[in-house]
Design a protein around this nucleic acid. Structure first.
Lengths: 150, 150
DNA sequence: CTTGACCTTCCCATGGTTGGAAGCCCCATT
DNA sequence: AATGGGGCTTCCAACCATGGGAAGGTCAAG
């Protein structure tokens, strides 16, 4: 199977397949004489797994952990479950953050008369809301909540 | 006011202040003879505004639009409200996506016995879930839902 | 005048993904 | 056999928002 067919079959783009290989998430693909990468059913299955995990908001790093558990037959499924539930916690926290943003914004919007007068509580409210000292070093561990594929 | 003091007062790091200036989000700061940037209260207010909008999940690009409305006294507050509500819609959609992820994951986790047996429905379920053809070109317009400052 | 904290500009890294260019390969049709 | 178009290869760059750090200038206190 060519990389293009593998992409089609797994839902992971060729670009990303090469990237995952390059970064070590997946092992180096077999090569044909021509230099073309060659994929078999097991490879496709792994790629589909990655795709599914990505869609559920797992980081590539976390997927690495999951793959390790996957290939390690001795490993307890409890480990996988723990990882999954940890991720659920992270998702729930993000959910709460978004809910807070929505509440704030709707609150401001409700107080905004929304006509042609130029003074707007949304504008004013935004400048007051933050203001505190700098919050530093909030880790960027989450990215990628978008892209539930269309 | 030095950039450091401005950062302290606004909650935007010096690094980001320079970045915002460089990318044109804010006008070029006044300079002292020494070359140091100099900020006044209006600058701080604008920075606080940016900080607040960022915390509410607005993109820098969207903030640019908001700033334009802000500085344009002729502009109707209806425009601001529309922008804000559009953003609320985006936030709600993201919320729905996360809710779906949580539901899927909790579903899988519930079916996972969670003991030391190696077969795990989470692992299996992930490989089946995705699988469809490649979803392409989903716009990356959202970043930054993390980082509600600690 | 020295010291240390601040400022300046520069470049680099992050994560996940897409885009493009330059060059080879494969297959089918002239 | 030649040719053309599409797929493959590698490499390099961009996106967004942010932090890190180096090399050098400035400021204020000791």
């Amino acid at each position: 199977m060519n990389i293009g067919e593998a992409a089609q079959a797994s839902g992971v783009s060729s670009k990303m397949i090469r990237y995952y290989e390059q970064t070590g998430l997946i092992p180096k693909a077999a090569r044909r004489d021509s230099g073309y990468r060659d994929y078999d059913d097991a490879d496709i299955h792994r790629l589909r797994f990655i795709r599914g995990a990505r869609d559920l908001g797992f980081t590539v790093e976390q997927i690495g952990d999951l793959l390790a558990l996957w290939s390690d037959r001795e490993r307890a499924s409890a480990d996988v479950k723990a990882l999954a539930l940890l991720h659920v916690d992270a998702l729930k926290q993000k959910q709460a953050e978004i809910a807070a943003m929505i509440a704030t914004l709707e609150n401001l919007a409700r107080r905004c008369h929304g006509d042609s007068r130029p003074d707007c509580p949304i504008i004013e409210g935004l400048a007051e809301s933050g203001g505190g000292p700098i919050a530093k070093a909030r880790p960027r561990r989450f990215g990628k909540v978008d892209e539930l594929r269309s």
